[in-house]
């Protein structure tokens, strides 16, 4: 299988408290050097809690945010320099479906934008393509001349997906695409995404905080904590037999009917302005030893293609 997307040591650092002449007061490492591979036709799930850097990572992948260091290769080519260069190969579906649509444009105008600016299509060609895309996300053609506020969340998210498809990109970054939707609608959108993937041979990066959703849609999953991948593996294994204690905490914390309330580990994320020298999870980890507090663990293979960044990985 060929690689659809590959990042090498991708890093993002934000300056805090900029000053006119002198260097900034502090730096926040939103994403620590991260290397990810996504194969063609694969769905890579990315899970993590707020502040873990998953949105920063996603925005770098589509070119909305320039990386501080590291490289992104998409379908064997380095991405380019502007969002427009990225736009033809990789597209983004936003979390909030309503605020991702300009309230003063009709749906047709919104969907036409990528066709005009990325592909330079003529009028008749555009119209045919839009009808085709709109049909593929199961929306009625009369919706095309309406404005975004007339749609419910689920319909608006279908329009957001249609816009990403219109750019004809083969890779979609889905940033919490269903977390603003009700469960009954959430399933409709997830199933639509699965159908589109089979039909069009798409590759997905599916970002979410909901472990059950990620597990249901992904082939492989990467778990992010404090700006770094702490564990990576096949979706069916990673939550069933986690190797990193943080993954296990996540899996136990997810509320499941019939199981007592779990995941009692106290504590929260370390201060990003003042990160600990060793493992970022050490202060919450029941297995932490001295080495965890001084040396940052590297992501290494544990078993098969399951990898974890832990000095003391869990037994299966």
């Amino acid at each position: 299988m060929s690689l659809a997307l590959e990042t090498r040591d991708l890093t993002k650092t934000f300056d805090v408290g900029k000053r006119l002449m002198r260097p900034p007061k502090a730096q926040v490492h939103a994403v620590h050097p991260t290397s990810l591979n996504v194969e063609n036709g694969e769905t890579l799930g990315i899970v993590g809690e707020s502040g873990c850097g998953k949105s920063t990572l996603a925005r770098m992948l589509v070119g909305l945010l320039p990386p501080t260091s590291g490289t992104i290769e998409i379908e064997g080519l380095s991405g380019g320099s502007s969002p427009a260069d990225f736009g033809r190969v990789i597209q983004y579906v936003f979390q909030d479906p309503v605020s991702s649509l300009n309230p003063r444009k009709t749906i047709r105008q919104i969907l036409e934008a990528p066709l005009i600016h990325l592909h330079g299509m003529g009028r008749t060609e555009r119209s045919a393509r839009i009808d085709e895309i709109f049909d593929s996300v199961s929306l009625r053609p009369e919706f095309l001349d309406r404005y975004p506020h007339e749609f419910s969340g689920g319909q608006a998210q279908r329009i957001g997906i249609a816009r990403a498809l219109a750019a004809n990109a083969r890779i979609l970054v889905l940033d919490e695409p269903v977390s603003a939707l009700d469960v009954s609608v959430q399933a409709q959108v997830l199933n639509l995404l699965a159908d589109l993937k089979d039909e069009l041979g798409l590759t997905y990066l599916f970002i979410s905080h909901d472990l059950a959703v990620v597990e249901a849609v992904s082939d492989r999953v990467a778990v992010l904590y404090f700006g770094a991948v702490v564990e990576e593996g096949r979706a069916e294994n990673i939550f069933a037999s986690p190797r990193h204690p943080y993954t296990r905490l996540l899996a136990e914390s997810a509320p499941v009917v019939g199981r007592p309330i779990g995941g009692q580990a106290q504590g929260e994320l370390p201060d990003p302005m003042n990160p600990p020298p060793g493992c970022a999870f050490a202060s919450r980890c029941p297995r932490a030893t001295d080495i965890c507090r001084t040396d940052r663990p590297e992501l290494r293979p544990i078993e098969g293609d399951q990898r974890a960044a832990c000095h003391h990985p869990l037994d299966p």
Binding site: P83, Q91, S100
Partner: peptide, 9 residues
């Protein structure tokens, strides 16, 4: 939607 417009080229 402004980000989306940038991605639309």
């Amino acid at each position: 939607f402004v980000d989306a417009a940038r991605l639309s080229g």
